[in-house]
Design a protein around this nucleic acid. Structure first.
Lengths: 229, 229
DNA sequence: AACAAAACCTGACAAAAGTCATCTTTTGTC
DNA sequence: GACAAAAGATGACTTTTGTCAGGTTTTGTT
C-alpha cells in the first residue's frame, strides 16, 4: 500500500495535521485502507469501535435510529472527516451508524495508536478538543432549528448547508447525492413532506432539480426562507 | 475569600478534579466568586467571555435565541457544572446566554489560567475532551428527540431528565423550579402545548404538581410515554 | 431494450401543534 | 392583606405535519 499518511492530502483537513512526521509514520504503519461500496455500512449503532475511519473519498451518512424506528441523519461526512472519534474518546460503544452514500475509500486507524498520541501530544489533544467544541456548537444550532423552525425552513437550511459544504458538479448541482428520504432524515420530517417542500421550492424557482441532483437558483430567496421571511 | 479551589467539593464534579494541588492553587488565586440573583444574566449570546464560570450553588439555564425570537433552552447547569468552556476552547464569542433560575454562587476563572493548564497538563485536556465528547453524544440524542418525538414524549423526557439529574426536595418534588414557559423552551414547543401536556399527565396520575413543583407519580407509565407506547 | 425494483410524486384525510383570546391562580411587593 | 404583575390554564380555531394509498418516473440489472 503506497498511501502513506505523511503524504496524504486528506490529513490537512483534520486533527491529524498537527502530528509530527514520526507520529504520522507510526500511524501509517498500522492503518488499513479499505474500499466501501455505496450502501455498505462502516459500523452500526451500538458497536464497539477499535479505531477511527478517516475518509479519503466518497461520502457517508451518520445516523441514529430512534425508538419509533425512524432514522435521523446527524452528519454527512466526506473527504478529510474522521468518523468515530467521539466514541473512541469516551471509550464506549458508538451511538451512530455509518453508511456509505457513495463508493468510499477510508483509512482505518487502530485505537491504540491514536490513544498514544492523545496521551503524549498535547497539540493533538487540543486539536481534537477544538474540533469537538465546534461540533458541539453546531449541534446546539441544529437543536434550535429542529425545535423552532418549520419543515420548509429546515429543508432550505439543509440545502444551503449541503451547498456550502460540498463541492458542486460541472453543471452546478450540489455534489452530494441524497435520496429524498435521506434529506427527510436530515431535516427530521416525513419523506412526503420533504418532497412537497422541494416541489414548492422548484415552483418558486428557488431551486431546480434533475433526478436527485439539486441546484440553488435563487440564493437570496433561499436565505429568506431559512430566516422565515 | 476563604473558598479555596483546593478544598472545594464542587471541583470533584468537573474536569478540574484532575489538576494537581499547585495548579489548583494558581487558579484559586485568580478566581473571583460572585453571587448572582435569580433572573440575572451571567452572559449573553454573542459576548466574548474572558473565562469560565464554575457553579457552586444554584441553577442556570443556557439558551439560544432563534431568528424568530423564541428562546431554546439547551442546558440546565447546576452545582459543579462549568459554563462557558466551549467558547473558551474554540476562542470565539459564546453562542448561548446564561441566566440564573435561582440565586447562584459561581466562581469565575479567568481564561489565561485555564489555557495554561490546557497547554501543559494533558490530563486536564483529556478530561475536557471526554466531557465534551459526552456533551456531543447527548446533543445527538436531543437532536433525534426533537426531530422525531411528539411534544408529549419530549415533555415526559424532560421531566424524567430533570428528575434524574437534580436532587429532589423534602416532599419528593423535582428540585429545579422551572416556569411552564421554561419547560416549553426546553421541549421546543409553545407554552400552551406544554401546559396542556402537563395537565394531561396529571389527569393520568403520572405526575402531580404543586405550583411550579413537579413530582413523578408513576415512573413506569412516564417511561412508556417517552418510548411512545 | 426489457424488466423489476427503487425512488419519486400527489391527493385526501387525520393528527399534532401553534396561535389568539380570555380567565384564573399564584407570587411578590408595598 | 391588598394590589398588580406574572404565571398558569383552557377554549376555539388555524396551520402544519404525518399517514395512507395510489400513481409515475428513474435506476440498475440482465
Amino acid at each position: 500500500m503506497g498511501n502513506r499518511c505523511e503524504n496524504c492530502i486528506v490529513r490537512q483537513l483534520n486533527s491529524l495535521k498537527v502530528l509530527k512526521k514520526e507520529e504520522l509514520k507510526a500511524i501509517s504503519d498500522h492503518k488499513v485502507t479499505r474500499s466501501i461500496k455505496k450502501g455498505e455500512s462502516l459500523f452500526s449503532e451500538g458497536e464497539k469501535l477499535n479505531g477511527i475511519f478517516c475518509v479519503r473519498s466518497g461520502v457517508s451518512k451518520l445516523s441514529k435510529i430512534s425508538e419509533n424506528g425512524k432514522g435521523q441523519i446527524v452528519k454527512i461526512a466526506s473527504k478529510g472527516e474522521m468518523i468515530g472519534q467521539r466514541s473512541i474518546i469516551s471509550e464506549e460503544q458508538t451511538n451512530l451508524s455509518a453508511v456509505a452514500l457513495d463508493d468510499m475509500e477510508v483509512c482505518f486507524i487502530p485505537k491504540n495508536h491514536l490513544i498514544d498520541n492523545i496521551s503524549k501530544n498535547v497539540e493533538f489533544t487540543k486539536a481534537l478538543l477544538k474540533h469537538m467544541a465546534n461540533d458541539l456548537k453546531f449541534a446546539d444550532t441544529v437543536i434550535v432549528n429542529m425545535a423552532q423552525k418549520t419543515v420548509k425552513q429546515r429543508v432550505a437550511e439543509t440545502i444551503s448547508y449541503l451547498d456550502d459544504n460540498f463541492e458542486k458538479d460541472k453543471d452546478g448541482y450540489i455534489g452530494v447525492i441524497l435520496t429524498r428520504e435521506d434529506i427527510a432524515n436530515v431535516v427530521g420530517t416525513a419523506k412526503e413532506a420533504c418532497i412537497r417542500t422541494l416541489t414548492s421550492l422548484k415552483k418558486d424557482k428557488i431551486i431546480s432539480t434533475q433526478g436527485k441532483r439539486i441546484k440553488i437558483e435563487d440564493e437570496k430567496a433561499l436565505y429568506n426562507i431559512i430566516q422565515g421571511i
